[in-house]
Simulated assay, not measured.
Amino acid sequence: MDVRFRLATEADAERLLAITYDAYVTIRELELHWPAANADLALIEDNVRKNDCYVLEVDGDIKATVTHSKGNELKGLTDLPFLKWFAVDPASQGQGLGGQLLDWVERTVAEQTGAPGVTLATAEKHPWLLPMYERRGYERFHAFDPGNGDGMMHLLRKTVVPDANQPQSNGRLDGQPNERVR
């Protein structure tokens, strides 16, 4: 099994759309207003162009994705990089691939930005996302109700590089597709 991490390209958009749509079924059932849950091809392509959209491939097939947002959604709340649009192909869930991708992206983004960690957001009413992220070492630091029916949302952060002034060499920083795990 050949596992690779890389930045997505617009040529990956159709596969990313399929994975994201299939993985976000619970989000739609909960009627959460997350853009990725009802994304179309144009929105996926826009995400790839404007952000760092990472993928994990197994034997050349994309199995998971997560995006490092280049926007400033959290301006005023934190300077840490923001991760969003995490999705794993449902046919590949339970194999640890999503965790591998998150581990690699957390380190890579923290090292590239010089930040000690990363942030993400999730809804309290989702039945398993908040506990899953907390098991992965994320801590809640801000809760808010966006007033759109999503209920309480939580911003979470995770320390990845304890001393950001001393970068660690864990993973490639140049975005090349030759990072392998066997």
Rank of each mutant, 00 (worst) to 15 (best):
D22A: 15
S92V: 03
W34E: 11
R136I: 03
T108H: 11
T78S: 15
H126S: 07
V88A: 06
G98F: 05
R107E: 05
A64C: 13
R140S: 12
G98K: 08
D59H: 13
W104T: 09
L30K: 15
C53T: 15
H126V: 03
V66K: 03
A91G: 08
F141V: 11
P35W: 06
P90R: 02
Y21D: 09
V25D: 03
P131K: 12
V105C: 05
D46V: 00
R49M: 01
N51K: 10
H126E: 02
D61F: 08
T26F: 00
L30E: 14
H68I: 02
A87P: 09
V58W: 06
I62G: 12
T26H: 03
I62N: 10
L32V: 13
W104F: 15
V105F: 07
V88Y: 07
Q95T: 09
L77Y: 13
V109L: 10
L102R: 07
G114V: 03
L41A: 04
W104Q: 11
L80A: 09
R107D: 06
A91M: 04
I62M: 12
I44M: 04
Q95S: 07
E57I: 13
V25R: 05
K125E: 01
V105G: 05
P127N: 05
N38Q: 09
E57K: 14
A39F: 01
I27F: 04
C53E: 10
D52C: 10
T78G: 11
Q112P: 00
V88W: 06
G76K: 05
L43K: 09
V48F: 02
E57A: 15
T65F: 00
V66S: 02
V55K: 06
A37D: 04
Q93D: 04
V66D: 01
H33G: 06
T20K: 02
F86N: 01
L74K: 04
F82M: 02
W104C: 03
V48N: 03
Y138A: 09
P90E: 02
L32C: 09
G76Y: 03
L101S: 08
T122G: 07
K50F: 00
R49H: 02
K63I: 13
